[in-house]
Design a binder for these strands. Structure first.
Lengths: 240, 240
DNA sequence: CGTTGATTTGAGTAAGATCAAGTCGGGTGG
DNA sequence: CCACCCGACTTGATCTTACTCAAATCAACG
């Protein structure tokens, strides 16, 4: 499929890219690859000669400590860029793993330079995406540092639901929700046991429905209040 | 002082910028402003028409919850960029405060666009700095999510000492260390009382000396081992 | 000197971790 | 077809880390 027909671009949360730039992106994309769930997309501490866009599926960025403790830094959804840190800083300090089967649009490393040289609008967009990703990280850090377990989980579910919807993954008032409770625990800095108990509380209070791999929000307003979660509105994002 | 004579640029951890680009930066910098300790540089949730570089002093980025809980997202040291998120995403989701008296190099918002259009190498550098800042955030998130209090404080002190040294702030084997224990607590997701107790343990074990606003590392190797902290080497950074 | 902010100390408490079983459901091989 | 296996989820009991509350000390400063 050509980039101009990319279904993601049709979504209202994504911003239109100039036709000339779009054609260039199309020309630079040298492959579209599929990987199974659980595949390692990036290894912690290694460089890469690829820049990728997540086209379909879920992934996550993570870091681990020598003794095996793992922190999920963020979940990746369709439209997210993979590996900018590795490209610019020579190595990625984090790993990236596929949570579901994924489809990636692959670009060569040299593309990044060419992009800055010849396509300033796209270069701006890349920086935009980097800033956007940092903002998501800031949100999570606030959660992990200063929210209690209930607030934390509520905030994460609200954020993921919103991001998934805006990528077009909402269906009948629910989204496919691939993370296991262990993934949520690693993202929130909690134990899986505790995530389980907190999740039951949210379910009992009718705030969320999470079963059979699908997530529905029972009462968004109440859930946001529980989380003390107030998302900053953001302008539509570009898609490289 | 002109940018070409900027003492930061002389440091080995900063990368040289092409003379033409440097002259352009110099022309764009329309002011250098001083602010006292405690000054609010950015207000949470507001936009800005300025882009700034921290030239001297310490600052920090933070977010707060409605009930007043605060999370410090990161400390800012000389050479760090302020307000990229606000510029690209229309609003900054975080506030920025001066920890000491600071000197800022001020640029107009339009500069950012012109930079992408006419100075691709500098545009690349801006993205580099954004990626670098995200990487620091990833480190902190790993700490707050998965390290215990002792490891967390040790990792933060190692990181801040390294960053301060590389900005040329080391003197006689120590650095001026302006954060209070309350700041450390807000950065680490701990209470001030607990930070105090943990700090005493690090002092007692001879790992750090922190008194009269100065920090010295007693045994860097041991401190890193305590923190399970392994910093990824990074290429020299640009300075906009 | 009184005030204010930072640090320190002690006592009691609570949120969440750890440990240990057990359940449930789907897939797999005999 | 069925036994079994494995991963995810659930539950209960106990324990620890770090929080909260409260008060004392200390230094800087007007």
């Amino acid at each position: 499929m050509i980039c101009a027909a990319c279904p993601l671009r049709a979504r209202p949360d994504f911003r239109a890219v100039a036709p000339a730039d779009l054609a260039w992106i199309e020309a630079q994309r040298h492959a579209q690859s599929q990987l199974p769930a659980g595949a390692i997309i990036r290894t912690e501490g290694e460089g890469s000669d690829q820049l990728q866009t997540l086209f379909a599926g879920w992934g996550f960025r993570f870091k681990t400590l020598p003794d095996g403790r793992r922190q999920i830094l963020n979940f990746l959804l369709p439209g997210d860029l993979i590996g900018l840190q590795a490209d610019l800083l020579a190595v990625a300090a984090h790993g990236v793993e596929a949570l579901t089967p994924v489809i990636l649009c692959e670009f060569r490393r040299e593309t990044v330079w060419a992009l800055y040289r010849d396509h300033p609008a796209l270069a701006y967009d890349v920086t935009f995406l980097a800033a956007h990703s940092e903002r998501l990280g800031d949100d999570i850090l606030l959660s992990v540092g200063r929210r209690d377990a209930v607030e934390r989980l509520a905030a994460l579910l609200v954020q993921l639901y919103r991001r998934a919807s805006s990528a077009g993954l909402e269906n009948d008032g629910s989204i496919a929700f691939p993370p296991t409770q262990a993934h949520l625990a690693d993202a929130l800095g909690l134990s899986t046991v505790h995530v389980n108990r907190v999740l039951q509380r949210l379910r009992r209070d009718g705030l969320v429905r999470l079963e059979a791999g699908r997530l529905a929000i029972g009462d968004l307003r109440a859930l946001r209040r529980v989380a003390e979660y107030w998302e900053q509105p953001a302008p539509p994002r570009p898609l490289i």
